[in-house]
Amino acid sequence: MDAFFCWDKLNNLIGVLFISGCIAWHTFQARRGARPFIRRLPALGALDDAIGRAVEMGKPVLYIPGVADIDDAQTLASVSVLERVAEDVASYDMPLLVPNCCSVVMSMTQEVVRSAYAKAGHPEAFQSDYVRYLCDEQFGFAAGASGIMMRERPAAIFYIGNFLGEALILAENGNASGAIQVAGTATVSQLPFFVASCDYTLIGEELYAASAYLSQDPMQLGSLKGQDAVKAVIMFIIVFGTVLYSLGFTWVKDLLTP
């Protein structure tokens, strides 16, 4: 058995099973009709305003899904938001520009945007130039995307996904172009830059909650309730563990150490 199972990961497995179980239970509970309350997220409320502004001004919308590849959950969460943004923009028959840093992400965003235009009844309005690959190197990408901002002067810019050192370069250029900006990332080190330069920012877990919030799908909303339950347990463990550790009992810490 020792040769089969990594026993030093047992606590990790129990934690994952507990968290997943809790989220899954609340998700399927929601299917039976339990509709949880979800607080207002101003950044997501601003999506419609930003798109409306673009429509009024007759200018394009720019959506940047981060610089990470498809193996990053932030990119996947970003694609969910893109789907909703693309449907809205397509319904007004307006251009949605999506520059990409990774070619796999490009093929996915291309499919999402194309089908959004088709769903909105304007398949002919989609042009392959709208969704394109710029450069794999983050600063090359930042230079390319900033160029698009200055040339096309979009009315609204969305930065949703994983961003690194290029975040401020993008956001400041977007600000200079006069666009309304909405950002969302779980990359802690870049959050201050977005908060300083953008009109609205989704912070950390709000990015992952965006899809549920926008779709209002009961099952997805249920998963948010599950997350809150997990966080409550984590908070209890932190407080309980800190008190015990301060009193000289280390078993909570030992349980959580690999």
């Binding site: 968290i19 989220i23 996947l76 969460a77 779980a186 877990e205 990015l207 992952y208 997350q227």
Partner: peptide, 12 residues
């Protein structure tokens, strides 16, 4: 923020 984001990541 990291803890919240990690739980969100597991959920997604």
């Amino acid at each position: 923020i990291m803890l919240g984001a990690s739980v969100g990541l597991i959920s997604v």
